[in-house]
Design a protein around this nucleic acid. Structure first.
Length: 810
RNA sequence: GCGGAUGUGGCGGAAUGGCAGACGCAUCAGACUCAAAAUCUGACGGUGGUAACAUCGUGUGGGUUCAAGUCCCACCAUCCGCACCA
């Protein structure tokens, strides 16, 4: 009997069947499983097949967990504040709130095509005042805890977006969003003291089941180093210059000192003869962009004319100024040991400064040095330290220096505090009132949310002021503390504010009293599986961890890491027509593939399978539209096979039983290891195998068919439900009473297997043998089968049961 | 410069140290058809051979092993991250 697969009919019938889902019920007994997607930014371009892939992966995993009997939290929402929405609005003359709503509607339509079992009752939107009330509330709590503070400082400024940026938003000296070169601008800023959490953010990475790559990126971003701060007196003056070094063990080798041009003492260290040159150098450095400073591999510098005294051996060393020293790391000044640091070495060579080696790899005298020696060895030329192991001294030196009173132990971080204010309209207003008498006063919690006012002109001003500053009736208010006339803060929060905590709100999205009910938080949080792209490795994922730790500290939640397991799916790339190379899908390249047409032509199930089949989920892959024909044909064959056995009364044969046990074993193991591409190919293999058996036996038994249906359900839910219903089931195939199929290990093995026979490591023939055959018998059979292919004296015989026979002969 | 990932047919890819190329795409041949599409059957890494078969073959060069795509060493290429953090 031939049964035709009609995806349009089947998918229409089951469309929305899981929206109101009687199978995902919290009966109080089930264990919870929280599977989260990184919520999308609702852009005007809609979703492409790359976005789809992530959502398919998370939905497959969610449905699998559902079938295993978990109560599933699988929500979706919208990260809708931020620059792109605002830029889009400005360009098209539509208010961002309108365009955002339109984009959400379109993307929601597209997401519904995936047939993911999102719980739309939990939907959140970061631009909803009911939501951002709590984004503001968290800010107020941080302000009260001293973690949100105001500061005027030179910050990264994007001249195109006309706003300040966080360190994490500057990539290669360019704006993460628009790729314009970032400049410095002195601005009054709201900062979040994320550095106060540096140690915990670093140490707790060890507790996470995350990709190594992301752990490493965060580790390096936080960049903890151990060392010492040492004061060097300036000769003939009461000034002292404090340096930070991670190599106090090389202190005897310090032959000069370098200050950043921005260091407070830089200009004042110049003497009569050097003043002009020093001033010019400092001025020139201030005119250089970050990119120029980084691009200049050739070191520049200027001698101040002053000398510092090495506090350990009283040596007199010249003080230089150079822009290779960063002003905002450590103390902005360094001691230079050219013998053991590449950068100092290059500087010393260029300006002909002395090089004194203080570590010898072998303890022998070191001659003329061609390059810096950064390894360890025996300490030399270092007075009382001579003869010590440099690695040991590196550990011990900070404490020894501290004992002598010439320095202190010090830990430093690359992580900087988070520049949190944006001079833009489309974001959460920062809930602070500036009172001339009381200073900065937070908006009282019962007055939150502080609603973003409607404005006529939401264009960025570029002056460092937000467009909100132009609305007098909004800006002018009274102090919540003393009632005197006061002004509102007019900066808004960055795009990351809402996304730093949205996953908490999903478990209690309509709570008017609290950010999240503590009981619900304890029950449903944290997130068990978080799926999304790797691009947020040090942005969203770091910020979320910081927020979670803070909310844990103030008792809102009882855990300190938001995402137990993280999975980064690979990008789906287009193919360059000329070179055939993979290229990122982008609007400008015109290589974006929309899923809409493919859903129409092949159906949701086929596209779901193809998104997985295309390659390993964690790797980037190239989209080739032709390939989907293969999975569509597979679904046709599968449907035909299963439905043609509907009336079958074939008794299950040993082969059928073993085949489905093997299938459950294979598919489950591959699914557990997230090898989703091979799960799909596995379905094809087993369908081919079962078709063969069916032809031979005149049909297949019911249990085998139902096992196939249940296994494929998380992947192709429509066709599975259709077939499941055809097999007479009233409940959904996802109903937890059916569970995920199990298998009997003993039945996954055959009694007889085919095994390769090698001579000297090369396969010469294969033989069929019983699995439990003895080594002697196996070898005898192998020799018999080889015949005269086996020549010469036998040196060694290897039999690995179930694997290989190898006979070494000469 | 440092760190990481990747490298297998025409293409996407598969392979707990054990028969390399599963599964699929494309291609070719055959069946069905007036014909085409769809579907079904078969072939499909290179070289030699009608064939059985032989031989070479997983970026390059070495090594370990009875046996290496897989482990080790040294390179090359591509992509990603960090990039004067002292």
């Amino acid at each position: 009997m031939k049964v035709t697969y009609n995806h349009k009919e089947i998918e229409k019938k089951w469309d929305g069947a899981w929206k109101v889902n009687p199978v995902n019920v919290d009966d109080g007994k089930k264990e919870k499983y929280y599977c989260l997607d990184m919520f999308p930014y609702p852009s005007g371009h809609g979703l492409h097949v790359g976005h789809w892939r992530g959502y398919v992966i998370s939905d497959v995993w969610s449905r699998y967990k559902l079938m295993q009997g978990y109560y599933l939290i699988h929500p979706m929402g919208w990260d809708a504040f931020g620059l792109p929405a605002e830029n889009y609005a400005i360009k098209n003359g539509i208010h961002p709130s309108i365009s955002t709503a339109e984009n959400i509607a379109n993307i929601k339509r597209q997401i519904n095509q995936i047939a993911a079992i999102y719980d739309w009752d939990r939907e959140v939107n970061t631009t909803d005042p009911d939501f951002y009330k709590w984004t503001q509330w968290i800010f107020v709590q941080m302000f009260k805890a001293g973690l949100a503070y105001e500061k005027e400082m030179p910050i990264n400024w994007c001249p195109s977006c006309k706003t300040g940026l966080a360190n994490e938003e500057v990539v290669d000296g360019k704006c993460e969003r628009c790729h314009s070169e970032v400049t410095k601008k002195n601005l009054r800023q709201w900062m979040l003291k994320i550095t106060a959490y540096a140690d915990r953010l670093l140490d707790d990475l060890a507790t996470l089941d995350w990709p190594e790559k992301v752990i490493k990126m965060q580790t390096e971003w936080i960049g903890r180093s151990y060392g010492a701060e040492i004061d060097f007196p300036v000769e003939g003056s009461d000034k002292k210059i404090r340096v930070y070094t991670t190599r106090p063990d090389t202190l005897y080798g310090a032959t000069f000192m370098v200050l950043a041009p921005e260091h407070v003492l830089s200009a004042s260290l110049a003497v009569e003869e050097t003043k002009a040159a020093v001033d010019k150098y400092i001025f020139d450095a201030s005119m250089k962009s970050n990119v120029d400073r980084m691009a200049d591999k050739e070191k520049t510098g200027v001698f101040t004319g002053s000398y510092a005294i090495n506090p350990l051996n009283q040596a007199k060393i010249p003080i230089w100024i150079s822009d290779y020293v960063l002003a905002d790391y450590g103390t902005g000044a360094i001691m230079c040991v050219p013998a053991h640091d590449d950068r100092d070495f290059a500087f010393a060579k260029k300006f002909d400064l002395p090089i004194i080696p203080v570590i010898s790899p072998d303890g022998q005298d070191v001659g003329e040095m061609e390059e810096a020696y950064t390894g360890s060895g025996i300490v030399i030329n270092s007075g009382e330290w001579n003869g010590r192991d440099s690695a040991e001294l590196k550990e011990a030196a900070p404490a020894e220096i501290e004992e002598r009173g010439i320095g202190t132990k010090k830990v430093n971080y690359k992580l900087r505090d988070w520049v949190f204010s944006r001079q833009r309209y489309w974001g959460e207003p920062i809930p602070i009132v500036h009172c001339p008498k009381c200073g900065n006063v937070p908006v009282p919690e019962d007055q939150l949310p502080l609603v973003l006012p409607d404005v006529e002109s939401y264009q960025p001003t570029g002056t460092g002021e937000s467009p909100l500053a132009a609305i007098d009736e909004w800006v002018n208010t009274t102090c919540p503390c003393c009632g005197a006339p006061a002004k509102r803060e007019t900066n808004t929060m960055p795009q990351w504010a809402g996304s730093s905590w949205y996953f908490l709100r999903y478990v209690d999205p309509h709570n008017q009293e609290k950010l999240v009910d503590r009981e619900k938080a304890d029950k449903y949080l944290p997130v068990d599986m978080y799926i999304g792209g790797v691009e947020h490795a040090v942005l969203h994922l770091l910020y979320s961890r910081f927020y979670t730790k803070f909310l844990n500290d103030i008792g809102v939640i009882d855990f300190n890491e938001p995402f137990k397991k993280l999975f980064n799916q690979g990008m789906v790339c287009g193919r360059d027509r000329e070179t055939g190379a993979a290229t990122k899908m982008s609007k400008s390249l015109g290589n974006i593939v929309s899923p809409d047409d493919m859903v129409r032509d092949y159906g949701c199930d086929a596209l779901r399978l193809y998104e997985l089949f295309i390659g390993p989920p964690e790797l980037d892959s190239i989209w080739d539209e032709r390939g989907i024909d293969g999975v569509y044909r597979f679904l046709c064959r599968l449907y035909s096979l299963v439905m043609s056995n509907l009336e079958s009364n074939v008794e299950a044969t040993d082969e059928m039983i073993r085949t489905w046990h093997k299938m459950v074993c294979d598919i489950t193991k591959r699914l557990e290891s997230f090898s989703l591409n091979t799960v799909v190919s596995g379905f094809m293999e087993y369908t081919n195998k079962l078709t063969e058996i069916s032809k031979k036996e005149g049909g297949l038994d019911r249990e085998t068919m139902e096992t196939v249906i249940r296994l494929i359900a998380p992947f192709a839910p429509h066709i599975a439900e259709e077939m499941w219903q055809a097999y007479g089931h009233e409940q959904s195939v996802f109903d937890s009473r059916f569970g995920w199929p199990t298998y009997d290990e003993a039945l996954t093995k055959d009694d007889e297997i085919e095994i390769g026979v090698q001579v000297n490591g090369k396969v010469r023939c294969t033989i069929r043998i019983p699995v439990d055959i003895s080594q002697e018998e196996a070898l005898a059979k192998a020799k018999e089968a080889l015949g005269d292919k086996l020549q010469g004296e036998i040196r060694k015989e290897i039999y690995v049961p179930g694997r290989i026979i190898n006979i070494v002969a000469k």
